[in-house]
Amino acid sequence: MVIVLAENEEIKAVEIKLFDKWSYEGIEIRDPSLKKYISLRPVFLPHTGGRHEHVRFGKSRIPIVERLINNLMKHGRNMGKKHLAYNIVKNAFEIIYLQTKQNPLQVLVRAIENAAPREETTRIMYGGIIYHVAVDVAPQRRVDLALRNITDGARNCAFNGPKPIEECLADEIIAVANNDPKSYSIAKKEEVERIALSSR
């Protein structure tokens, strides 16, 4: 991108980086079904102000980091405190980089791909009897469930524990990105898929 200033002067535009640190270049989404629903559109500040709210599938166009921040605000102490949640994610990304030496955005994308369940159960009523039937999970719901499980895992780890939530969130994202079965999100995903398998 080039901005022309005068007849002979021109400067190159600055690359947009998340938190002015992490590049969006070269981030790879391996799962083809999630490509449309993990938004990696470059933004300086992940804060859209809810402009997606009345648009169908609008949340799939929100930067994925903002969706993580929004999920951290749910339930209890952090309710509505977006700046606090923003700082938690920013510090967690620093910890992820120190531990893995990789771009935290890439680690987050890997974690979402690994934590997203492919199959779950739904209730179907037939003749007054309720059956539980296995169904495939829609890609947008897969991303929602993955983000919810990652933030729930971090919240459970930090609640009445010695570690601050930034460390818990970083540890959970790294563990899920490495497909560690001890992490909360992977355990939850495997439980949901196991129940769906038995309901086929």
Rank of each mutant, 00 (worst) to 15 (best):
N70M: 11
E191C: 04
H54E: 08
H54P: 00
K12D: 08
N149W: 12
G76K: 12
I38R: 00
Y126S: 05
I112A: 10
H54T: 04
V89T: 13
R41K: 13
L169G: 01
A175D: 13
N160Q: 13
R67Y: 04
K82R: 14
E119N: 04
I27E: 05
K82N: 03
N160T: 05
K90V: 04
L98Q: 15
I129Y: 07
R200H: 11
R67G: 00
S198G: 03
L84I: 13
R30C: 00
G127A: 01
N114Q: 13
F57K: 10
R194T: 12
I186Q: 06
M125S: 04
A196H: 06
F44S: 14
G26S: 11
V133P: 00
E193T: 08
L72G: 04
A111D: 11
L34K: 06
N70K: 10
Q102T: 08
R77C: 04
I96H: 05
K189P: 05
M73A: 07
R141L: 14
I165F: 04
E166M: 11
I64H: 04
K82H: 10
I129M: 07
I62V: 15
S33K: 14
N103K: 11
R67T: 00
E9G: 00
I95N: 08
S185W: 08
K74A: 12
P104L: 05
K82Q: 12
E15S: 14
I3M: 12
Y86M: 08
R110Y: 06
R41L: 07
K59E: 12
E53R: 12
M73Y: 01
I62Q: 07
F44V: 05
I165C: 06
D171L: 07
P63G: 07
E53M: 08
E25P: 00
D31C: 09
G80T: 06
Y131P: 00
W22S: 03
S39F: 01
K35H: 02
V176P: 00
E120N: 10
H54A: 02
A175T: 02
E25C: 00
Y131A: 04
P42F: 13
L45C: 10
F57L: 13
T48R: 11
V109H: 01
L197F: 13
V2I: 15
I96K: 05
E15W: 07
G153A: 09
C168Q: 03
F19K: 06
L147K: 07
E172L: 03
Y37Q: 02
P139R: 03
K81L: 12
I88N: 06
D171S: 12
K59M: 07
L34H: 02
T151A: 04
S23P: 09
S33D: 15
I124N: 02
E10I: 10
K74N: 09
A170C: 03
G50M: 09
P46S: 06
V43Y: 03
K36F: 02
L108A: 07
Q99S: 09
E66K: 05
R118Y: 13
N178Y: 04
E53C: 01
E167T: 14
I27H: 02
R110E: 07
D171W: 01
L145W: 04
D152V: 10
H75M: 08
A158F: 14
K17C: 08
K188S: 13
R141N: 11
L105T: 07
V176H: 01
K82T: 08
V137Y: 02
E119Y: 09
S33F: 01
E28K: 14
S39C: 15
D136S: 14
E113W: 06
I95Q: 06
P42K: 05
N160K: 11
